[in-house]
Write a protein that binds this DNA or RNA. Structure first.
Lengths: 328, 328
DNA sequence: ATGAAAGCGCTAACAC
DNA sequence: GTGTTAGCGCTTTCAT
């Protein structure tokens, strides 16, 4: 392990003061070109890397951003993380990540613990209570992901538009009685998807059977499948892809054919939808772009603290694959 | 946004010096109990959170650890990340994450960039060249994940044992001619899996058809499926689950039944193996435990810099599901 | 047991 | 254009 080379070492070797080295690195136009080049050359030669913690101590900016997610095993959140990581790197920021294991209390702690080491944090927390979010927004610069709240910047995905496309698609196929399998009632996403659905349905002659809530996982789908079939629907709209996969498995076990006997749609488009059999008709959530957007919003807010709060919405897109067809 | 409360504020309010506050927080037994309690009470009251960057500047420890992975969209790496995050939190460390987008050159940069802000980094890089890893190990405390290299601590998964179980299983079913679909030739994992396979095969009367390399993704499986069938094998061992899924899809399209006409196994056990149809027989890689182990190794090394280098191996386990059966 | 003071590596006035 | 110096928030001698 090589010993750390500091700004002093560079200064000595380049025969200048530490201030000049600092300037050469951070405000190049403040030093004469020849000096700058000499300094930079020495720095490169010595393999000098500025200590960002020390820099942050004085500038007040750490060059880091944090992201808190409920579960790193969920491809939805890792997609977001990927986008965040990407965009952060473009902006020369490093990213702290924390996984709360779906525990809202932990989320609050994690944000607070991060607060001192980052310039701001991106919070993906469907569960945490609104009042607490406000307190956190007070403790650090916060950007919400996939959740809208007055006065807090947010990167959003417009599930309403996706749901409208789902309903238009199903109605065009000839469906009139459709089940919606709710995810967690309190989650912002579920509310949004449900709202989009209800709006879309009003424009058509459709019976909407509102079911659940179910756990937003494979097991939730297994459970929901039987209940939905009992309602004699011809199409099932699941809260998300994972649940849809559970429905698919359960229907197959019961000998119900998809899409011949019943149509099925998911939501999120998390990779395995495309890989499974039959491939799942679903709505693609732009998770990676949303992660990128969140970073942009955060950096923008940091640079421009008293501009108005931006909440931007990305469109979602129906992906028709093979689980939807005209009713029998 | 509330202004930061520093150690000075606490000191003033508690009527002690900053040194005493510092001691009360980090070496409680150096201050009188009554003083300590008073200080702690004030700190809690003011919502004081020590600035870790400042602390790190003087102690030389940041309390952070880094992890560099090739792709955050790959559930293998996010599983590891989950384990890392988990264990780091137990040890009150924060986690920096960086995604190299499968670019070995970027990996090196990312590690170097992190080096100053972390106590050590966990590197998951099948691709990066051995010499460069050594240089990185010189620049920071490094722990390798799923890759063995002399003198560098490593958290390993013993794919050999899993492969032996696969072959024993297939042979017990009556297979004699088996294809192995190679992943990237240079990847440590592929070498290990292949080696395990060859050893296992020697103990039985089996023709091993070594095919590929193929890209370790869905498309690689699509491509490999036809080639494997042309070799008249009765069982196909894919480098990993994703490739196996590609094989499965292609075989289904061709009307080849799995497992009736040909058996198929994957490797990794990445969730969707269980969800697909038929559920995939595969080898479970303990990715989350491996992440945890990597953190332990890192922390251990940090605490005990001149102990011998630990390289620990976790066992892998065959998971028999529904894609393997006796040959026709 | 506690305080005063030095200093971690760096940037930002302020001089010249 | 460059050097000198103070100080970011904290820990850690060294005194007392």
């Amino acid at each position: 392990m090589s010993v750390a080379v500091t700004i002093r070492d560079v200064a000595r070797q380049a025969q200048v003061s530490v201030a000049t080295v600092s300037r050469a690195l951070t405000s190049p136009d403040l030093v004469r070109a020849t000096t700058r080049e000499r300094v930079l050359a020495v720095a490169a030669d010595l393999g000098y890397q500025p200590n960002l913690a020390a820099r942050g101590l004085i500038t007040g900016k750490t060059g880091n951003i944090g992201i808190v997610v409920p579960d790193l095993n969920n491809p939805f959140f890792t997609g977001v993380l990927k986008g965040v990581q990407n965009q952060a790197r473009m902006a020369s920021h490093a990213v702290f990540v924390a996984d709360s294991d779906e525990d809202p209390a932990a989320e609050e702690q994690l944000v607070r613990a991060m607060a001192k080491q980052v310039d701001g944090v991106i919070l993906c927390s469907p569960g945490i209570d609104e009042q607490q979010v406000r307190e956190l927004a007070d403790a650090t610069t916060l950007v919400l992901l996939n959740r809208r709240m007055r006065g807090v910047p947010a990167a959003l995905m417009n599930s309403g538009s996706g749901m409208r496309q789902v309903i238009d698609h199903l109605v065009a196929l000839g469906h009139h009685r459709i089940a919606f399998l709710n995810g967690p009632r309190t989650s912002w996403s579920n509310k949004e998807r449900r709202r989009g659905l209800r709006v879309a349905v009003q424009r058509h002659d459709v019976d909407l059977v509102d079911m659940g809530p179910f756990p937003p996982r494979y097991e939730g789908g297994l459970q929901a499948a039987d209940l939905a079939m009992a309602e004699k629907v011809t199409a099932i709209v699941a809260y998300n892809d994972i649940m849809a996969l559970g429905v698919l498995a359960r229907l197959r076990d019961r000998g119900v054919r998809v899409p011949e006997d019943v149509s099925l749609t998911g939501f999120d488009d998390l990779m395995f939808g495309a890989l499974c059999q039959p491939p799942l008709t679903t709505v693609a959530m732009p998770v990676v772009p949303a992660g990128r957007l969140a970073v942009d919003l955060l950096l923008d807010r940091l640079a421009n603290r008293d501009a108005e709060v931006r909440q931007e919405e990305l469109d979602t897109q129906l992906i028709v694959r093979a689980t939807t067809a005209p009713p029998a």
